[in-house]
Design a binder for these strands. Structure first.
Lengths: 207, 207
DNA sequence: GGGTACATGTAATCAGTTACATGATTTA
DNA sequence: TAAATCATGTAACTGATTACATGTACCC
């Protein structure tokens, strides 16, 4: 029936509806925000658009609330559950994507001013140091509830990464790489090219 | 001159050209792949499209190679450098995005079969356990070369995250959360809703 | 009763992804 | 010299982001 390839967003929505039972896009959004949304943001417009698509494909079923807000309410169909199960069965093994603007700024720090990198590092460290205690509170709250173990696993992963990343940025803030004097890129220019070439060789065929 | 807001991709390209000197999209691509590309993938089509845009906006300058492959060669302009510097000066402090399909599968593991989650976890662990030694080789190679310190910092971050994530997946593989018997979601259904609500309260106003 | 935050959508744009296509070097 | 990989692009599609818009509930 459907021809398009489902996206991660598709499966997330599918899974949330399966889990929450009949639910509105807003409920999906809220639950996502509380879990994977911490590190993988799904803008709410998407969480309204995606269920609509899935409904067209017969993987969700849509009904409208009578009266009141006239909300859209979605439930999983059997073929929706099937799609979800089949997806869960594949261990495709794609690596993570980690996107942090600050990492790009660290990378290109040579072109900035002296204090830039340290300021950026402190800013990031500050953010994660504030999020960590919240996560820990969540984790202890969930520890009692075995039914939330899957949810808990997600928060545990967020915590794991936050810790690592916080540590990293604190180190950078402590001893930030300094931009070279006089903007002399000349030296690093050829070195960077050599590095890229070496890297390509090391990763294509055998090292 | 330009009206659009520059994207992270824009600044990355700007920075790479500034760093490499006059360069072709392919050289940009290769260098990106060797550095941030490890965790933040920029498809090559983008690294051909973006310099073209930047050239239109006067932030890069484009010339064509005479004869041969007739390649496009880009260099930074003064206003390009300015844009880069000004961007580096802002510590906007956005948190990272971490996207790993396996994390979604872990989250939704309740709907899969018994062995699924463990298989997925092993698969991820396997990948990172293979990448780590490569990164370490790179790091020791770069340790000698002070001009590559910014580049090295990036690889260090990748290593940091890989370690943390590898550890996490190994733990999951060791004792994976089991899907409930009989697909009884009923219990966790309301708990999940409660959790989402609690989370919303904890993160909006003060906890 | 007025303001602020929660809730619920739609529209338009564009970056990003995938796919297609082919020329130039190596390497076997 | 054939195969494989490296290098270099373009076209088309569509999901994702941004922005707009408005209704409803709650708090002071």
């Amino acid at each position: 029936m459907s021809s398009r390839e489902l996206t991660p967003t598709s499966y997330l929505v599918l899974g949330m509806v399966a889990w929450l039972g009949p639910s509105t896009p807003y409920e999906i959004k809220r639950t996502v925000a509380a879990t994977v949304g911490n590190v993988w943001s799904f803008p709410h417009a998407q969480l309204y658009a995606e269920p609509a698509r899935l409904a067209e494909e017969g993987l969700l079923e849509e009904e409208r609330e009578e009266g009141g807000r006239n909300r859209r309410i979605y439930s999983v169909t059997e073929s929706g559950l099937e799609a979800l199960r089949s997806w869960l069965g594949q261990a495709d093994g794609l690596p993570y994507e980690y996107r942090e603007t600050a990492l790009l700024k660290l990378f290109l720090g040579a072109f900035g001013s002296a204090g830039d990198t340290a300021a950026i590092a402190r800013r990031q460290a500050n953010f994660y140091s504030k999020r960590l205690p919240v996560l820990e509170a969540m984790l202890t709250a969930m520890a009692e509830v075995p039914d939330l173990k899957f949810c808990r696993a997600v928060i545990q992963m967020v915590e794991t990464i936050d810790r690592a990343v916080l540590d990293f940025w604190e180190q950078v803030a402590g001893s930030p790489p300094q931009p070279p004097e006089g903007k002399d890129v000349g030296a690093s220019r050829t070195l960077l090219r050599q590095y890229a070439q070496m890297y390509a060789k090391m990763t294509s065929r055998q090292g």
